[in-house]
Amino acid sequence: MILSGFLDTLGAFVFVTGAAFLALGGLGLVRMPDVYNRIQAGTKATTLGTLLVLVGTALIEPSWAIKLLLIMLFLMFTNPLSSQVLARAAHRAGVRPKGDADYLSRDMEDLT
């Protein structure tokens, strides 16, 4: 593969920006103190990171754009969704969040 044109360079730059966001998310995953904060760091960074990776790929290979767009749409729906299900599961399994205010535990009697 020969990468030379302007679009290729731009695409590769967008790609590496996405990878940088992924790495920052990974750093958040290691550093954050409890599971909820880790989910936060994980989900935001991986979503934007992967989106930028896909946009960068579409700039390098314009003929793949439609399929990349479908992957983007799919990820934008499922990625936050799995994080929400995971956060809910963690709370129901009894993992207490760090911090003083937890309105969810306070209302737990009303929830099944």
């Binding site: 990468l3 360079t9 590769a12 790609f15 590496v16 990878a19 940088a20 992924l22 790495a23 390098i60």
Partner: peptide
């Protein structure tokens, strides 16, 4: 240049 970016992206991914 573009190749360099992609190599860097690979390193960040790993």
């Amino acid at each position: 240049m573009a190749d360099l970016f992609l190599i860097l992206a690979g390193v960040l991914t790993v």
